[in-house]
Every structure is written in structure tokens, then in C-alpha cells.
Design a protein around this nucleic acid. Structure first.
Lengths: 165, 165
DNA sequence: TATTGTTATACTCTATAACTATA
DNA sequence: TATAGTTATAGAGTATAACAATA
């Protein structure tokens, strides 16, 4: 049937099939940029010299409660090429939030651990992140936010996992 | 009341207030990246040497049916600093999709017009864009896509317009 | 003086390709 | 040979700051 419901946000001319979907792409781009700008603003305010990508990596490391993640694990979770992780870890290691530790069982692998500094940075980071999210999501009611979260989760867990190749 | 509904996608440990919102931020980042990668893939397939940011600019110019937009207008619509527009227009003018035209009424302003090449590029672009969107949104039903579009529109039109300053 | 766009510069993010050291 | 990470390089995207031309 391919029923499409047009809403207010559609630009006035040419409402062809599929345009609404393409519009979602544009909205995602804009919101993501706003979100990252807001996050940067809040982090600057806290004197946290951590870039958004570094922040994502830090959070992933913080989440791995069991064994410290390998570079390759981080690449997969971040959905980037392994080479990109090297740059991020270089910077984080330089500012003392993270530590490369060799894996005794397999001397090719490098495991990434949070330092104490990293752990407190992560705590501060969470505040900035939430403040930014709250700011961006403020036009939505809690119920709408839950709805949005559900839809986004469906998409993220859905087909996407092509990774960066 | 601040009722928060936790869903499956919550990471298991620590479910503090605000975490769900912050999670939405992460999902936005991931989806946007996937969407742009999909778009690039489709555009490469069509031999369209137009980057995502250039594509956004091109679409905006295509939408301005009345008078051609000024550089400053484009900066505002793209939510970037004017300097960033210069780079984009330089590239688009170099590949012949766009033309800088002086405004006779105010010799400071530069107006941007689509060339014929630009118009056909724009048509091809739309196909790639929709294919990418369809790909990313495939896990959702039409009704869910409409719902998502509505929520994102609310957010985009909502508080955000801080622009890049 | 305020506005419009640009030159100059720099940084973040990420990719591909080739190489090293393991295994 | 396949795997894990790195060096080398490049390009997209965008920002700030200083400046020129015009209003």
C-alpha cells in the first residue's frame, strides 16, 4: 500500500513519494549537529578538553565492565575503521584519560583501560552529555522522548550494521 | 512527575534519570553516520562527485524558487558559519553545478543560482538520497516513519535554532 | 559603524593503502 | 596466510580571526 502521511514540515512544492523519508535524513543531520554543538558548549564550560569522538570512545571503555576492550572492539562499537581508533586513543592517552596495555595472551592485541583521570572525566562528561540532550529534546514531552527513543533504537538495532568498510 | 519509560535498548547497569535522553544523542550520531555513508554509496554508484554538504547546499538552492539565495541565506539554512559556505560554493562552482551572480541592488551580496548541470545533478541526487533513506528506514513501518518524521520535525523547528556562532 | 563575503589558518573526523609484528 | 595495529596520506567539514568592499 505504501501509505505516506505528509505533515506540516514538508516544503510546499513537489510532494512525491519517498520525499518524506529523505526529509528524515536532513532532520537527522541537523539535529546531530545541534546536539554535538550543545555538547561541546557544555564541555567547554566544564574545561573538558575531550572531543565528541573521544567522548564516545571513553564511554564505550567505561561500559566494558569485564575485560578491557581491544582496539578492534572499539572500532566495531564506534562503527569506524580501526585506523580511526588509533588517532583517538593517541589523543586520550596523551591527555591521560586512557592507557594502552599489552595483552599477555596475544601480543598483537592492545587493550584500552581507563585511568583514574579518565574515570572522573567520564563522570563530568556524563553531565555535559545529559545537559546537551535535555536541551535538544526540550520540545518533547517525556512520553514523546520515550517514543523517539524506541523508534531510534529500532533503527539502530535494525538493518544498519554495515560498519565502515 | 517526570515519568520515564525505560525500553530494551537501555544498557544494563546504572539507569539514572536523564540517561535515556543521553542515549538518544548517541543514536542520533550513529544513524546520521549510517545515513551519510549510505548516501555516499548511492552517489558513488551514480558517479555523482558531490559531497554530502554540497548536496545539502544544492538542495537548498533548488528549493528557493523565487529569488536566488545569498551566501548569508545559505549559511543560515545550513546552520553553518558564512565562511563554510564559501568553500562549498567554490567547489560547486568549480564543477559547474552552481553560479555566483552579483546582486545589482547591493554590490556586497552574491547570489547563488543553479546551472542546467546543477539542475540535472539535483534530480539524480534526489534518487540517491531517497534510496539511502529507504535503506536506513527499512526497519520501520510507514506509520512509524511518519511518527518519527513528526517527532524530528518538532525537534528541528523547536528550540534549536542557535545556529553556529 | 554595520554588513557581506572572503583570505588565511587550523582542527576534528574519518577513509584507503601499505607496512609490521605477530599468530 | 590471516589478524591486530600502526605509519603515511588525504579529503570533507567546519570554526575563528582578520580584512576588504560596500552600505
Amino acid at each position: 500500500m505504501n501509505l505516506v502521511l505528509y505533515r506540516g514540515a514538508m516544503p510546499s512544492p513537489e510532494p512525491p513519494a519517498g520525499a518524506a523519508d529523505a526529509n528524515v535524513a536532513e532532520q537527522l543531520v541537523r539535529l546531530t549537529r545541534r546536539m554535538q554543538r550543545a555538547q561541546k558548549r557544555h564541555m567547554d564550560r566544564l574545561d573538558l578538553a575531550v572531543t565528541p569522538a573521544q567522548s564516545r570512545l571513553l564511554r564505550i571503555v567505561g561500559h566494558c565492565r569485564g575485560t578491557a576492550p581491544r582496539m578492534a572492539d572499539l572500532a566495531e562499537r564506534l562503527e569506524v575503521v580501526p585506523r580511526a581508533v588509533t588517532t583517538l586513543v593517541d589523543a586520550l592517552e596523551a591527555n591521560g584519560t586512557v592507557r594502552r596495555v599489552p595483552d599477555p595472551a596475544n601480543r598483537r592485541v592492545v587493550r584500552i583501560e581507563l585511568t583514574d583521570t579518565g574515570r572522573s572525566a567520564l563522570r563530568a562528561l556524563r553531565g555535559a552529555r545529559r545537559a546537551a540532550a535535555e536541551e535538544i529534546l526540550s520540545p518533547l514531552t517525556p512520553a514523546q522522548r520515550a517514543q523517539l527513543g524506541g523508534l531510534l533504537s529500532t533503527l539502530v538495532d535494525g538493518a544498519g550494521g554495515t560498519g565502515a568498510h
